[in-house]
Design a protein around this nucleic acid. Structure first.
Lengths: 223, 223, 223, 223
DNA sequence: TATGAATGAGGGTTCATTCAT
DNA sequence: TATGAATGAACCCTCATTCAT
């Protein structure tokens, strides 16, 4: 009987635990959302904990109940953003079944679009600005962002090389090169806040230009 | 007599004016030098006016006699830096008389080295971080930095195209593409503070890789 | 039947009451133990309720279920400490059966050692620091600490006076004087954190010096 | 002529310098006065920089223009107080020309009165409370306070010993012992905020009691 | 014009206390 | 009753800017 009671109690306890754990996670996410808004808009230094608290709808003290401090909150925000906002970049490489050139063009288009998105643009700004003060920031960004993309891409390129579609010595390096080529003009200029046409047509044109350039370097069939 | 006196007076006044104007300009440059040291080391938000005053060897009040405030001083610093520190980038394109591939390799090497230099690396960090708050920053940077380089480069490429060495439709776009290709791996990773080999040999290797890639896209003689 | 039930109920209730009262007292002591550790180490202002809760192994809320607040907890801690940690001081006066001078020397030694002990040193620091904000602190300290000791001592001295060993007009004042003489150099300097030799030999030497001084004032046989 | 002008200029400059230096010292003293009020009333931890600024009639920022921070301000305050408020203690030993017993009584009276003064009482509280966190506090207090007094006193005692008025082996230790004896009852209890009669008559009575006790220990003529 | 002391708003952070669970 | 997340006032300190000298 006592064991039953115990069970019930522990069951209740477990319920309560999981309920409160869930509430905590919810609050944490609420804070992270507020932090995201502020950090993305103002960067690390420009953001204030008061602002974040206000934006998140909690008191300043609560921020410190959930995170060790501004730096800690920032890191958590950055990891969260990197994990969620760079997915498209990763996913862009995965769809297949098209001919190689079309695949390249679609990939280039996706890369440009992701890099132009407000989230990744802000993340890039922040990481470049704070890289020296937050060494693991870049690591996080790289791990969740470029690294996954580059892995997928170089694997894909290696497969294509094995199929004889391309000739590539160093797929990893070539993948990085392709990513850089995608950033020509539009992404590059937008990062500097320079005026540039970034409508779909311009992006498409650039993607074609990039893909064709790439094919000229590595393709086997282009004459 | 009054005219003589007038002349003498205005002459004196003019002398004094020019002398004081010169002194003012000297003080201004002194301040800009101090500001440069501090801004490059700490960024915009991280720099304090006291620090700059100390570094420049003037009082804090003097800062405000010569500039409207921190933002104004920052903009002036940035223009100064852009004008003076990005020269190498511009110069790199100018030397000629070598065969095309060697020219490309030397150019790529120079571009990578300039972009890796502390000054331009810091400038890049600053501009990317503050571009949204200082809209004309990027403009300055672009005008004194990339624009001149790209102009030189596209002119050079157009000349080579005219000579039949390369086939290039849009020299300006191709110039931008080449600049991006130069930033593959080393520059890109260094901006994110990621570990990367950046010794002379690695740079040279990358320059060759980039130049050869470029030649495969645009060269006429490679088959 | 109702009376039986009543009895059983009230019995149960009483049992439960006493059981829960005991549990409450246990928890209270648990808290006081934690508070002791923290207060003695950090003083009143330096201690935080979180720290105390952690040290006591309870939640912060529980602190407020058992005590009205920080000040209340502090007072309770202080009384507890005064009651338990100043015993040695009290006990030191009690052992007898030796000749008077030896008794004085042993007493002086004990007094110095007790006053140098971390617990009483901390208590002294705390009481002197917070006496103005916690008026009854000193009262507690005095009642449990010096008062008992002085009572024992003056009783002892009065007995010795009655035996003709010493001539003492005001035993209570003389007792206080003796206690002060014991604090010469070593205790006094240690309270100010000044460097001083406090090894057993130095204490013993000081005790002899103090006892002999005392005998010269009050002794009858020293000529 | 230019030298004259130079002289005049430098003269003016010197005047201005000394004027501004004077103004700075005045402001510094103004701050120290405010800090004194607050620190003496609330101790180190209990005092807030806002409170001090308000009390001193300056802005919070000004505090930091004149002192490195709270700890620095506190140290300056403490040294100032020690230097100025413990003078009487030092002076009390110096008047001579009376017979020895009268000198002792006057000295004891002075010591008790100084130690009972609000300033030295507060300083003592603060030093005992913060000695562990500000190691040089006690040193300052000791140097300006007890050390000078003890030096004077032991010199005086040594002289009296040479004159054959007293027999003293270790004048320094005896001086410390005398100081402790002076703290019997009144000073001791006041430090603990315990009720005690501290009117002039009580002090005089205690001084006589202490002096006579001292004479019984060290005097040569008392039978 | 040059100075630097004064300002005060705002920075990040801590903490005693409360209260829903 | 026990919990600990939430609170918000207060903490020390920094800094861009002003202004009397």
């Amino acid at each position: 009987m006592s064991s039953i009671e115990d069970d019930r109690l522990s069951g209740t306890a477990r319920d309560e635990d999981s309920a409160s754990a869930c509430a905590i996670r919810a609050k944490r996410n609420q804070i992270l959302a507020g932090a995201g808004t502020v950090f993305l808009a103002s960067g690390y230094e420009g953001a204030s904990m008061s602002q974040i608290a206000r934006e998140a709808g909690v008191s300043k003290g609560t921020l410190y109940n959930h995170f060790d401090g501004k730096a800690s909150l920032f890191s958590a925000f950055f990891e969260e953003q990197s994990r969620t906002k760079l997915d498209m970049l990763f996913a862009a490489v995965n769809d297949d079944g098209l001919d190689f050139r079309t695949g390249l063009i679609q990939l280039a288009t996706a890369v440009v679009k992701v890099l132009l998105s407000p989230a990744s643009m802000s993340l890039y700004r922040i990481i470049v600005a704070e890289a020296s003060q937050f060494p693991n920031l870049a690591d996080t960004f790289w791990r969740y962002g470029f690294a996954r993309t580059l892995d997928s891409l170089s694997t894909w390129l290696a497969r294509k090389a094995a199929e004889g579609v391309v000739v590539i010595d160093d797929p990893a390096l070539t993948a990085e090169q392709f990513m850089m080529m995608c950033q020509t003009r539009i992404v590059q200029r937008r990062r500097l806040m320079l005026p540039v046409e970034d409508d779909a047509a311009s992006i498409q044109k650039l993607a074609v230009f990039t893909a064709d350039s790439f094919l000229k370097i590595y393709g086997t069939e282009h004459q």
